[in-house]
Nucleic acid binder design. Structure first.
Lengths: 331, 331
DNA sequence: GACATGACTGAAATCGATTACATGGATTTC
DNA sequence: GAAATCCATGTAATCGATTTCAGTCATGTC
């Protein structure tokens, strides 16, 4: 509430001096400093980040934006925690937004962030060619992509080796003797989807298994589509004996279908999901999954962002983290 | 990037006129308006929310804060979605922070929000007497409490009837014939904990069941404490045959203990949790829980906040929503 | 003792918007 | 036809900070 003006009046100095005391910069004679600090305390002064941000150009707002599809998805919640913890450690605040995989919402929030003069933005782009993100980067705003990469845009990026994760998951199913493995993947415009599909195909190819096209279905990353697609797959005349589902929500959906059809896991159908869940252990059955180090993805993304804010001209970096197959009882 | 100044220059008018065009206020002659709009478009002008916020006093920042203990807790994630959706609908952006049930973090973020001149704040207070929240409200900042209430502070509040939820949960266990029901509750400085405990005690009293003090344990809402306390309870010489666990994370923890001890649910021990989980259905076994309308809590809190921003002098309102016992297979 | 040096501090510009007030030309009114 | 009125627009103050530049006073140097 109290402004620099008021503090200056009370301390009988100019606002410049108060500002200097606050920024611990320059030399203010100890007596003056004491008087000012006294006034500061008495008035319970708090600087206005808004005024400060208006004056200072670029990179000192101590505010960054994070746009994720859905905070209710544990994978993104974990990323968000990683970003937030790293931000908090550096005393940055976080503007968090849910895009719902909806380009319009994404655009709205990107506008807000530009308009709020955030120091930088972390986000998984909507798809390969996300125009809004390209424009944003073109303004010079620091952008760090997480999880998903973009074809035409060179930014800092923290991603997971999706091909490897998928390859291991499918190989694991093959090891268990499965020959008909259903794939439930996400939107194909998203880099992770393509990499996981590639991993699936490569694992089959390595063992010389013929691909059955009808076993591959594309969903939209949401629970409902997992439910529906699993149902389609299991209703085939020659249904798969195992399912590889490419994200957490769709896996939960697929599991619902399996239960509903009264199938036993893994005897009747085995299932491997992508993304771990905090309660995967407590599920029926405990789920075998490809675990992504989501917290770490978020944390490192924020650190990259901080580095870029400090030095906007550094060359973009790609950090590629390793997923891990966590074997439980669903396979 | 482009400022009013630049637009004004290009359109050969004053910044006041550009501002008028933007705010659709006053009368600007159509020709002038057209010229300005042209310039606006050509320069891809975006207003600075920062400058705007600095100039305008109170309630027009179109920015609100939300502080929750942990976004990775599905209950709070659901509240957050409710708040966010309502905020987005009103074109408000959201500053989201995790306090980790840590008063220092809470204070840091409250400072940020004051300093960012947000229009208002939604939060579940740390406890009954949360000093930081009291100070915040004292500055005149609109505050809406969710989930938890505060003893000494009269604010808008959206809560759930915790007593009733607990009462129904425990009555349900009693209906099933249980006489020794363990209680795992949260921090007792939090209003919800006390209300749920009261519900537990009242339900027992109604059936004339003697309370066994050693069956009541207080945790900290986190998974680990659920695990530990359940273990303590089940290790008693005369262990409970049913558990009532007062939040979602502790329930998952308790379930882990139960599985680890090789107990069957509900034959060896029944369990009812507070808070539903999106995958409660898929758990082993599907969990009986008291479902809180968390999304609705968040949504209504945001609407109350909007009303208060519009009219700071209206009398504080308390909205009390009803929980619902969802019976699945763990009881 | 005059002048250069340096250490503090203050005055004022600045960031990008909103808005009260001033201005000036056209129109109305008597 | 002069005064009053009105309308569109411009000028300038303002929000609360940071920062440049200038000013003041004491000290050091010869």
């Amino acid at each position: 509430m109290a402004s620099l003006q008021e503090v200056a009046q009370r301390a009988k100095v100019s606002i410049a001096t108060v500002s200097r005391v606050l920024n611990k910069s320059d030399k203010v004679v100890p007596e003056t400093r004491a008087i000012v600090e006294q006034a500061l305390r008495e008035l319970g002064y708090r600087p206005s980040r808004v005024a400060r941000r208006l004056r200072m150009k670029d990179g000192r707002a101590h505010l960054v934006g994070l746009i994720i599809p859905d905070i209710q998805n544990p994978f993104y919640a974990e990323i968000a925690r990683g970003v937030e913890d790293a931000a908090y450690a550096a005393e940055y605040a976080l503007l968090l937004c849910n895009s719902d995989e909806n380009p319009e919402k994404e655009r709205f929030y990107l506008d807000v962030m530009l308009s709020e003069s955030v120091d930088g933005i972390v986000l998984p782009p909507f798809d390969d060619t996300d125009a809004a993100v390209i424009e944003m980067a073109a303004t010079g705003m620091p952008v760090v992509c997480v999880d998903r990469s973009m074809a035409k845009l060179k930014t800092d990026l923290v991603e997971v080796d999706n091909h490897r994760g998928a390859f291991e998951a499918v190989s694991h199913l093959l090891d268990k003797g499965h020959k008909h493995i259903g794939l439930i993947e996400g939107r194909s415009q998203v880099s992770t989807s393509r990499e996981r599909r590639r991993g699936y195909l490569d694992a089959l190819a390595e063992r010389g298994i013929t691909v059955r096209k009808e076993l591959m279905r594309a969903g939209d990353f949401k629970q409902e589509s997992g439910r529906i697609l699993a149902n389609e797959l299991l209703a085939l005349r020659k249904p798969p004996t195992a399912l590889f589902v490419c994200n957490n929500l769709m896996t939960v959906g697929a599991l619902a279908t399996i239960h509903q059809r009264g199938l036993r896991v893994p005897q009747d159908v085995a299932i491997v999901g992508f993304d771990d869940l905090p309660w995967a252990e407590a599920l029926d059955p405990p789920l075998t999954v490809v675990r992504q180090p989501a917290y770490e993805v978020g944390r490192q993304a924020m650190e990259l962002l901080l580095k870029r804010i400090m030095d906007p001209d550094r060359a973009p970096v790609t950090v590629r983290l390793l997923p891990e197959l966590v074997t439980r009882s669903s396979t």
